[in-house]
Amino acid sequence: MRSFIIKRLLLLIPIFFGVSVLCFLILYFIPGVPAKIIAGEGATKEDIENIRVVFGLDKPLYVQYLRFLRGIFTGELRSIKSGESILKEIAPRYVGTIQLAFSSIIISSTLGILLGVLAAVYKNSWIDNLAMAFALIGASTPVFWLGLLLILVFAVYLKVLPSGGREGFKSIILPALTLGLPSSAIVARLTRASMLDALSQDYIRTALAYGIPKRKVIFKYALKNALIPVVTVIGLQFGFLLSGAVLTESVFGWPGVGRYIVDAVFSRDYVVIEVGILITAMTFVLVNTSVDLLYAVLDPRLRKG
C-alpha cells in the first residue's frame, strides 16, 4: 500500500512538468508572433519590441519557461490587461472555484449514490422509476436553464436564498445545486447499475446465508464493491465541474477561475490564460490522483503498485 502511494505521488512530477510545458507553449501554438499577439491589433513596431523585452520574449525558450514558472509562484507574472499580479488576482477566485466544485461534488455524490442504491435495492418498483426519471431529467437539463429556474424559485418567489454573489454559506447553495444536480443524475445511474451487479454476486448470497441483516449487506458488503466504478466517475465529474463551472459562475455572478479565464480569452490576456489553464489542469491531476488512492482503499486488488 505504501509503495503504491509513493509511486502515485512520484508520478505527479512528470505530469506536472508536461502540463506546465504545454500551458507555457500555448502562446507559441497560436499562429503569429507572440509579441504581436500580446500587443494586439494596431500596435507599432516599437510597442512590439517593447513587449518582447518586458515579457522576456527575446530570451531563449527554456529561460522563458523558467521565468514563467518562477513568475507564477512569486507573483511577478502580471495580467496584460490589468497589470495586476496574476497570483493575487487568481488566488481568491481559485478558492471560490474549489468551494463551488467541492460543494457540488458533495451534493452530486451523496444524492447520486443514495438514489442509485435505493433504485437498485427496490429494482423495478416506483422508487426505482422515480429515481431514474429524476436521473434522466437531471442529465438532460442545461445548466444555465436550471440555474435560472432555481433563481426564479428560491430567490425571486420564495426569497429565501440570494440570487448571486459570494457572501456566506447561503450564496453557495444555489450555484452548488445547479452544478451538482445534473452530475448527481449521472452518479445515480452508474451507482444503480454497479449496485445491481454487486447485489447479484455470490458473496452477497454468502452474507445473506450467514444471517447478516439486509441493511448491512447492502451498505457494507455490496456498496463497497459497487463504489469502485462510481468513484472514477465522481473524479471525472470533478474535472467537468472545474471547467463547466463557467456557465454557473456567470449565471450566479460567482467569482471563479472559469469566468476569469473566459474574460481573459475575450481580452486576449494570454498570460492569464496560460496560468489559469495550468492551475485548473493541476487541480484536475491532483483530484484524479486522489481518486486513484481512493481506489486502493476500496479495492485491495489494486494495491499492488
Binding site: A209, L298, R301
Partner: peptide, 19 residues
C-alpha cells in the same frame, strides 16, 4: 442462518467478498 445452519458454496473463488 449462519448460527444453527450454515452453508458452503460451490464457487470458492466468488463466494467471499473481495474487498
Amino acid at each position: 442462518r449462519g448460527k444453527e445452519i450454515t452453508m458452503i458454496f460451490q464457487e470458492p473463488m466468488t463466494s467471499l467478498n473481495p474487498v
